[in-house]
Design a protein around this nucleic acid. Structure first.
Length: 620
RNA sequence: GGUCCCAUAGCUCAAUGGAUAGAGCAACUGCCUUCUAAGCAGUAGGUUGCAGGUUCGAGCCCUGCUGGGAUCACCA
């Protein structure tokens, strides 16, 4: 049994008999002793002053005395500093725990017989994936692994936005300027090829718009806007007017805009030629996305396509009307009033009877519940949509959806560059594929600089560089609390030293190297009588906390807890490695104990990294 | 303007209401004949945006303020 659990039970019992005060395991103020003090665990006694009717120091001393006297098998010693009771656990207990941990290093959570659906990635098919998607994908994947480990049955899904005006823009530009090019003929990855035509459309449109701005019709509009403008506010500039008029121009005057919209209408009318082109180009995109997903090592159980789900949700509107949860205005539009829960009124059906994004999300939720009957759904979506999800969840609650209480928006902050937000117009968007290539290249360059890859078989080198490079990139992103907006510095993302993925991999690699020379520890061997040293105990204590960190990550929907824990373990191991020799241990018992500690460390590190979506190389 | 989020070392980030707020990067010093130096040890760096409050105890909870961001479409 975990020493802290024994200690907790003992203290709870003791406090009950001494002061008639009830603690339970969760609220007992017992934590690992800070390293500047001596002891294993520290009990904070302030909470007991009322029940004990004496000073914190006195309480600490009294409890300490009783622990040492009555439970000598558990507690060996104690000291008291300003109301903090620092407790030393018997070394034999730690050694016994190491033996147990060695045969069973990974925490086993009970299976919950509860299904949770995790939605992430959510790409649009008109553009390749970029850095923002990478954060989303890493969070979603890692969250799904952590929930799985915490006992849930996990279903991974993505929602693909494969329809709408955006993909029509790509299609139109390809028709007009593509000259029949394909990923095969051009040698360009499919999603990039389609993205290139999206960019081409925007360029052509911009040129058309600029040309139009010199026409008399445009000049009239500018004049009208200037005449109408509020004299209190700064005057309308020509440039400012054209900037804000862009969308209106696209919808009302643009030739290209008209062609793109016509294409969308034809698509909705199932025009066979348009549908065929659409399928072909989306097919290129999916092949491209698949390559990126493969490179990142993620998979989905099911993909939902908006082309198949965008009409869903209408029946829910009827249901909501029947239940009087929604209401219809004179113009025929349907709304929900959420002002009583601090939100606004929200439209669900336009006056022309067409649905909006929210309607579709309602339908998709219902659809997925029919598919998987998951009472929990986690949406991994950037925090710019916080309000949308508040509203979505509130509506589903009002409709009494059976899964309404299990809805979670795993909201994460936008990824920014040191120069500010990524802007496609300014070409500062960091492409996912480029980024992956870059980090692998850097990992290789780093290894070549170091010149120590000699004993790695040449056929494994590429694989090792890939694992190192991807760990650098992924760890750099996943270590940050999701809620935070993060500044992504490409230079730092390829760092291989310090608080990085490769640093953690290196701890694992060092252990594997020891095992190649010393052999694995003998399973089930007795370590009884070993006098664990404080540096060894420090690592063991950290290892004992793995389950807590998984639990915390699962409860808070925050994989960064696991990431930071893995770093703490790697750091503790590197220190241990420097302080103690395994191969040249002073005794056979010490050697065996250290082999066990190393083995547990390696397995926990590998497992934690696996939960984060990273792989360990055997050598580096 | 309403609502929500954020503010910690030069930079990027940690810190279940507990002790003297920690890491990494960047800078500087040491340590490879010894299990992989992608490492270890050390120096330096802080009024946790500001002002109050609650508490035995506040970076964390409450109020106000300042600065930054998101959002508030019959867009998605």
């Amino acid at each position: 049994m975990h020493p802290i659990r024994q200690l907790k039970q003992t203290i709870i019992q003791l406090v009950k008999t001494m002061y008639n005060h009830d603690f339970n395991t969760e609220d007992l103020p017992l934590s690992p002793t800070r390293k500047e003090f001596s002891g294993d665990y520290t009990l904070v006694t302030f909470a007991l002053t009322r029940a004990a009717k004496t000073s914190p120091d006195q309480i600490a001393t009294d409890i300490g005395d009783r622990l040492v006297q009555d439970y000598p098998a558990i507690v060996s010693d104690y000291n008291v500093i300003k109301g903090f009771l620092n407790i030393d656990i018997q070394t034999a207990l730690w050694v016994g725990y190491l033996e147990a941990l060695s045969s069973n290093p990974l925490p086993a959570f009970p299976r919950l017989d509860e299904r949770v659906l995790v939605e992430f990635a959510s790409p649009n098919t008109n553009k390749p994936l970029h850095l923002g998607h990478v954060r989303n994908i890493l969070l979603g994947w890692s969250m799904s692994k952590i929930l799985d480990r915490a006992g849930y049955e996990v279903v991974r899904v993505q929602v693909v936005n494969d329809r709408g005006i955006a993909i029509c823009k790509s299609m139109l530009a390809w028709q007009k300027f593509g000259g029949g090019s394909t990923p095969e003929s051009s040698g360009i990855k499919g999603d990039h090829l389609v993205g290139d035509y999206y960019v081409r459309f925007e360029e052509e449109f911009k040129a058309e718009y600029s040309a139009w701005q010199t026409t008399p019709a445009a000049a009239d509009l500018v004049k009208a806007a200037k005449d109408k403008s509020d004299p209190q506010k700064p005057p309308v500039s020509e440039e400012g007017f054209f900037k804000s008029y862009k969308n209106t121009y696209f919808n009302e005057a643009s030739t290209l805009g008209a062609e793109a919209r016509e294409m969308l209408i034809k698509w909705e009318a199932n025009d066979p030629d348009i549908r065929s082109l659409w399928s072909t180009m989306n097919g290129w995109v999916y092949a491209g996305f698949q390559q990126t997903y493969d490179a990142l090592g993620v998979t989905f159980d099911k993909s939902y396509y908006e082309s198949q789900t965008y009409l869903l949700g209408r029946d829910l509107v009827d249901k909501g009307l029947d239940k009087k949860a929604f209401y219809r205005q004179e113009d025929g539009s349907v709304w929900i009033d959420l002002t009583d829960v601090g939100l606004d009124k929200k439209i669900l059906l336009r006056s022309d009877g067409t649905s909006v994004y929210m309607t579709q999300d309602l339908g998709t939720a219902e659809d997925r519940y029919r598919d998987f009957e998951a009472k929990r759904m986690v949406y991994v979506v950037a925090d710019e949509q916080n309000y949308h999800f508040q509203v979505l969840f509130a509506i589903l609650k009002r409709l009494n959806a059976p899964y309404a209480n299990g809805l979670v928006h795993l909201s994460y902050g936008m990824v920014e560059l040191p120069t500010g937000r990524m802007k496609s117009r300014e070409g500062t968007v960091v492409d996912a594929d480029d980024l992956i290539q870059e980090v692998i290249k850097e990992a290789q360059a780093g290894a070549v600089d170091r010149g120590e890859s000699g004993d790695i078989p040449p056929e494994e080198l590429a694989e090792v560089y890939k694992k190192i490079g991807l760990a650098a990139l992924k760890y750099h992103i996943i270590k940050v609390n999701p809620k935070r907006k993060m500044i992504f510095d490409p230079k730092e993302s390829v760092d291989l030293q310090g608080h990085t993925g490769p640093y953690i991999q290196n701890a694992y690699v060092r252990i594997q190297s020891i095992f190649r020379k010393a052999g694995e520890p003998t399973s089930g061997s007795s370590l009884a009588g070993y006098d664990l040293q404080s540096g060894e105990k420090e690592l063991l204590l950290a290892l004992s906390e793995y389950a807590d960190h998984i639990q915390q990550a699962a409860e808070q929907y925050d994989p960064s807890h696991v990431a930071n824990y893995a770093y703490a373990i790697a750091k503790a191991f590197h220190k241990f490695y420097h302080e103690f020799s395994v191969l040249r241990a002073e005794s056979e018992l010490a050697r065996e104990a250290r082999l066990h500690i190393s083995s547990v460390t390696a397995q926990i590190l590998q497992d934690a990294m696996h939960l984060l979506g990273m792989e360990m190389p055997e050598r580096m």
